[in-house]
Design a binder for these strands. Structure first.
Lengths: 133, 133
DNA sequence: TATTTTAAAGATAAATATTATCCTTTGATA
DNA sequence: TATCAAAGGATAATATTTATCTTTAAAATA
C-alpha cells in the first residue's frame, strides 16, 4: 500500500484522511465513477458527504492529481494521473483497463492534414473483455 | 439543403418538423451541444419543449441516426452519423472538427497486446485551431 | 508543543441537467 | 379521411452537481 501524503502535497493538496482514502481507492480499483467511489468511501467514513467527493474530485483534477476518462455510452470514471495512455472499455461489463499505445504517428498524421496545433490525444477502444467473451 | 424525411424514416423515426429542424441544424453546424441546439430550435419553434430535444436526441441515438461525441473538459456534442472518423477539438474556442485518420494499425496493435475483442475506436485530438493560434 | 491560520469536511440548500408523466396533436398507413 | 400509434408540449419528478455556511482539522509558525 502506498502512502499518498507526499504525493498529494506535491500537488498542493492537503493530505486529509478522505483524500488519502480516495487516492487508495483509485490506486486499488484503477478507475471509479463518482457514484461507486462515494459508496466505497461511505464504508470507511460513515458520514462523508457527497459534496466532499465532488469537491475533491474537482480540485484533484484542477491540480492534475487525477484525470477524468470519458467513456462512450457510460458515466465518466476517474484515475490517478500517470504517464499518457489509452483505455479499453468492455461494452458488456463496463470494465475499464489502461493500455499503452504509441500515438505519435497518428498525431503526426493529424498535424499534417489539419490546421490545428495538436498537443493531446485521447483514445478509447471499445470491445469485450476476456471475462465476458 | 438536404431533406431528411427519408433518412429519418430509414432509421424508424417519424419525420416531424422538429426532427427535420434538428437534422438540418446538425447538418449545418456539424456538432452541437443540447443547450445550443435548444436555443437554436427555439428560434424556429417558439414553444418547443426542452423535453422534446432530449427525447429526440436520445431516440435518434438509439436508432443510430446521430452520435454523441464526448469531449475532455467540455459538454458532449452531437453529430449526424457518418462513416467512422475522429475529432479535433480546440481547447481555446471549443470548436469541434471531424478528421479522418486510419486507426486500423492502432486497433491491431491493441488487439495483440490485450485480451479484449476490440470493435471500435474513439479518438479525440485536442489542440488549438487555426483561428485561435 | 501550543497557537494561529487557512483550507477542508459535513450538512444541506440551491442550481442544473435529465427523465417521466399526462394530455393533446399529428404523421403515417389504409 | 379516418384510425392509431407515436410525438409534442407542459410540467412534475429525479438525478447530478455546485454553492453556502458552520464546524473541524491540517499545516505553518511562534
Amino acid at each position: 500500500m502506498i502512502n499518498y501524503t507526499d504525493e498529494l502535497r506535491k500537488h498542493n493538496l492537503k493530505a486529509t484522511p478522505q483524500r488519502l482514502a480516495i487516492s487508495d481507492a483509485l490506486y486499488i480499483n484503477g478507475h471509479m465513477s463518482i457514484e461507486v467511489l462515494y459508496e466505497l468511501m461511505l464504508k470507511k467514513f460513515n458520514s462523508i458527504s457527497l459534496a466532499t467527493i465532488y469537491k475533491n474530485i474537482n480540485l484533484m483534477m484542477e491540480n492534475s492529481f487525477i484525470q477524468e476518462v470519458k467513456i462512450p455510452n457510460a458515466k465518466s470514471v476517474y484515475e490517478l494521473t500517470k504517464t499518457a495512455h489509452s483505455h479499453l472499455v468492455c461494452d458488456s461489463c463496463g470494465e475499464v483497463e489502461d493500455i499503452t499505445i504509441d500515438l505519435d504517428a497518428i498525431i503526426d498524421e493529424a498535424k499534417q492534414i489539419s490546421s490545428f496545433k495538436i498537443d493531446k490525444a485521447s483514445l478509447v477502444l471499445s470491445g469485450v473483455c476476456k471475462n465476458c467473451q
